[in-house]
Amino acid sequence: MKKIIALLVICLFALSILAGCGAGTNTPAEKDESKEAPKEIKKEEYPKKGITVIVSYSAGGGTDTGARILLPHVEKELGVPLTVVNKPGGGGWVGWNELLNAEADGYTIGYINTPNLMTGYLNPAMKRDKTIDDFTLIGNHVLDYGAIAVKADDDRFQTIDDLIEYAKKNEVTTTSTGMGSDDHIAALKVNDSVGTKFVPVHGKGASHGKAGVLGGHIDVFFANVGEATVPHKNGEMRVLAIMAPERSKFLPDIPTLEEKGYGKIYSWSARGLAAPPGLPQDKLDKLIAAFEKAMDAPEHVKKMEDMGLLVKWMKGEEYKKFLKEDEASVIKVRDLLGW
């Protein structure tokens, strides 16, 4: 028994040394600042202690990774540590319920992912009484527009026009990350406005869909720019169009559906930050200011761009309007979803 405990202690020791020495050798400036900064802040002002950031998805996922890249820069602004707590489950609603029920003292904030959040309460089977209006909004972080891609050697479709012409006459299977996901809604929107016959194959997560398309089992990859850019550049897939008001800077050669004359068909998945209802205005202002500054940190923008993710800061009325539009676009396809 004693020997086991000794073994454990040694191991923990090794791990902590390693974490310490790793941080020391590589990013000394960043780490040190975040640790020393709190002393400079006056004690009586918010924030006095660390802030918990609820991420409604598992560690290592897209939202989590994005959060961990951004938050060190927010720490610099606020002078207190921001700790990510992953609360996965219920399609994100385990974490969102927790956020809504947390004390509105500014020490608990969280990520909200849309349109997943809306579909969670617009689906009547879920019987939820909370909506996007219950959150105190801080601002948007990432805006990832929808993309339509096919396997690189799929000769049937050279352009988006080929695909849509074909899909008007034939059933074409598309990837989806689940009933009511943004990819699913995107396919329904195209069906609705252009008269195509896209049939979503619901799977778990984008990697499932990617495997399906690369293996030639599913015809079309309905996903986000962030997921389609890498396979496109690797020559595994060809992105045919994106569903955005303007072209993406990651894929400047790819047309939008709108410029190809298919109407204003937009799709996106966005994630931003929110606080529990009733957060006092002064604390909210402080958080907004800190996040606004952190968004511009070059290191943050660079890392997000490497991942193919567009940082799009929105706050206040602009953000609110954006989310209401998001909600409205889900409500619009309600009938198609059978809700």
Binding site: L15, L18, A23, T25, N26, T27, A59, R68
Partner: peptide
Amino acid sequence: ALLIPVTFGMD
């Protein structure tokens, strides 16, 4: 999952 954050600062 729990150790990914620990590897952030590492080579």
